[in-house]
Nucleic acid binder design. Sequence first.
RNA 1: GGGGUCGUAGCUCAGCCCGGUUAGAGCGCCGGCCUGUCACGUCGGAGGGCGCGGGUUCAAGUCCCGUCGGCCCCGCCA
Length: 588
Amino acid sequence: MKRSCYCGELHAGMIGEEVVLEGWVNRRRDHGGVTFVDLRDREGLVQVVFSPEVSPQVHERAREIRSEFVLRIRGKVSRRPPGTENPKLKTGEIEVVATEVEVLNTARTLPFRLDDKDLSEEVRLTYRYLDLRRPWMQHNMKLRHRAAMAIRQYMDSLGFIDVETPFLTKSTPEGARDYLVPSRVNPGKFYALPQSPQLFKQILMVAGFDRYYQIVKCFRDEDLRADRQPEFTQIDLEMSFVEREDVMEVVEGIVRTVFELIDVELPEKFPIMSYKEAMLKYGIDRPDTRFGLLIQDVSQLFESTKFTAFKETLEKGGIIRGFKAPSGARFSRKELDNWGKRAREFGARGLISIKVTDQGLQSNLLKYLSSGEAEGLKEAFQVQEGDVIFLAADKEERVADVLGRLRLEVANALDLIPEDTYSPLWVVDFPLLDWDEEEKRYVAVHHPFTSPMDEDLPLLDTDPLKVRAKAYDIVLNGQEIGGGSIRIHRRDIQKKIFDLLRIGEEEARVKFGFLLEALEYGAPPHGGIALGFDRVMAILTRAESIREVIAFPKTQKAQCLMTGAPSPVDERQLKELKIKLTATPEEK
RNA sequence: GGGGUCGUAGCUCAGCCCGGUUAGAGCGCCGGCCUGUCACGUCGGAGGGCGCGGGUUCAAGUCCCGUCGGCCCCGCCA
């Protein structure tokens, strides 16, 4: 007996056919006389009827069947008796009347019901093979597969070549912590698992492949979040002889292609916003543009204010910004106090809230404001009755950060974030460098191989922090789903950057000399990007965390509850690697 | 490294604030009955000593300290 089709594929057109099904018992309903079994496989469910009138022996066998037993069934596809159809089931018009049944395997009682909606992740991850049987997870994994297939097809159609890059590679300075792999044949030396194939893809451009892509695992030994796993998957690509716009066009195509899978049509071109504008209006470099509540600078309104807090802030070179929350006036006094508390948790010194009522502006700040300032606020925020204005004063970065976070939480509280909207955009013109106060040196905002903007090149010598990078992030609904840049392909500029990063000649040579050397052998101008595949899939499936779209994810402590990894290893293995532990795993 | 939150039956949770009979519920599980159910119904039953360790107390799921683990967040994540 061979399976003739999947349970979920049966339909009314097959009535009268004899079929052989193989699958799991989703549920058994024993009526003493007739017994029903819902048989499940990856494509769906169908009701199987065990009737004593059809076969007393088969009916008798059905008594021993329990949930999640694996069965092979021969039977006839039949129309259900009138009145017994189940419109909730895709196969609800029909049922399979069993003429033979074979128990291929029994199953212990499951630790949880597969249809339980409130399972803890701890239990789900411990029994991930059972969790993955659930329709939601099957759907996610299938959609992930289809997305990967669609991307490969799209990339191939554009002439991109999939080249595999090594997992056992060289530890790189800068960036995230590396996962290290000891080399037995080279005692005392370690490989690192790649944080990304960055250097290899650039080398492939030097090698003349022109267009490279890979859907590839990357590894970063950093703390986990809902959208961060120690191993994750990137859609990685690199192109030669291109400018920023060329990369963007390809990526927009990828994202559009993937969203077609859930019947969402994204625009041909995604909006482009400068880093500066994002920080000003959204207080964050990955703005959620699905809703308003835009932040505005109102510093100049208060140039001659009598309100001491504002006055002092401005005198110290700080700024005053705020945003308007439509319908926010429905917040009670206590709720507004809580927003102030929240702002302080974010690091603000305080938060001013002003209600717009039919009596005019209402706030305990009002007595300190001139009528001109009050009018100015109304004008600046174009207020309507029922709005609330939130204002914060501090140095620029602090205000941006506080208001940026507050904007998200307030919008959430007021239910102003539309569910079914997908709002992609590019953020560009990032600064190339940032100043690390602790290490007293510049650090690369993106990575050390990112090209400065041509027109900013002179600034490298005079005011490095002002230099903008040829970098671009793609943001969707407030989540960074990818980032990339045009790379430096000239050795002299690369050297200048290393100097600023205080990466010495010798250090550079040791750490990525191979790339520097490669750049000297006719490296074409090139650039690329990496997209977070897991994050894209999480958005596509509306999952709360990327763990929902990863078959075997790690917990926040970076452990696998199913396998127990990571685990101690034999003394013998360590000895072979010439590794001595300074503490036992128990001691930590 | 830090903040928050949770940990009681196989699962989901109540009980903890205000210590005091044999620690509860729903679902699941086991057994009986039931020929049209599909979250089947119905009758009956089993099952935990409250994550772990210590302390306070006549008495600790309940209070205190520590620790382990799940989740969220800050730092970190070129």
